[in-house]
Design a protein around this nucleic acid. Sequence first.
DNA 1: CTAAGTAATTAAGCAGGCTTATATAATAAG
DNA 2: CTTATTATATAAGCCTGCTTAATTACTTAG
Lengths: 152, 152
Amino acid sequence: MSDSSKSFQEAVRLTMCQVRHLSMHHLWRFAKEQGFSMAQMITLRHIYHQDPAKGCSISDISGWLGVTNAAVSQSLDKLVDQGLVERQENPHDRRSKQILLTPKGEEMLKKSMQAKQTWLEDLAAHLMPEEQTQIESAFRLLTEKITDMEKS
Amino acid sequence: MSDSSKSFQEAVRLTMCQVRHLSMHHLWRFAKEQGFSMAQMITLRHIYHQDPAKGCSISDISGWLGVTNAAVSQSLDKLVDQGLVERQENPHDRRSKQILLTPKGEEMLKKSMQAKQTWLEDLAAHLMPEEQTQIESAFRLLTEKITDMEKS
DNA sequence: CTAAGTAATTAAGCAGGCTTATATAATAAG
DNA sequence: CTTATTATATAAGCCTGCTTAATTACTTAG
């Protein structure tokens, strides 16, 4: 591996480490206040990151979390009761369910991310316009590449 | 707020959203495999982000997590048993304890972050050298600014 | 058509993380 | 010095998220 690549990785790692720590804390507190378990928060986010047309199955989620289907099914019951997700029949396989976020669920997730918004505004205030532009283009590039990676 | 600042924030938000989702998942799986609770992982990271000379108190941690001191004290018992953290007397206030990571604890935390390493190498492989340089400098700047923000 | 396999659900039971209540020791305030 | 407050620890008990086991419904393979 080249030295420049090492340097790149170190820079990314450092920022990620900070962001991860703050995000983790934020999500933990949000979940606690709203009465969700960590598993439910991760589930909601996982559904959110799926193709909204297809949703995802119970097995998808249990595989992602590393728990049993039973656990996911029970956990979803509560989210359904609260109107955050819905179970739909999979037309291609009637054993399977398509789990989808309801508008209410999507709104809730957005809200959970929005608290970050204030932080982001603070950050913006600490940066000169040129600095913002520089970081912005780096992040756009990164988003694109990460998306590519997840697909492959 | 200026349009350019909005655009900046949106770019950062998008990347963070991806990173958060993947990090969350990664940490969840790691904790599960290693037999730690989410609260313990967040605790360890919190200690890690403190001044290593001072450590932090039980109250610090319970405030950070939003749980009682009793919960933290019990949770730390297990981490102490495993040799990951140690309780030291605070010389300035003998009621209080300084909670510190042991070398073993630090190593464990590093390990929990290292799995990200592979991902980072994959990412680097998807990027041209110029792209890496661009992102790298943006991240160095960002780390600096976030550190400033946390201090203030 | 039958048998085996897969997806989800339900129920019972366990374990661990959290809370409250209580106790101890040290500090701060009067 | 006495009293109140703060920091932590311990014990008992609750709650909930998870597991296993059993069931239903559907799909696939032979």
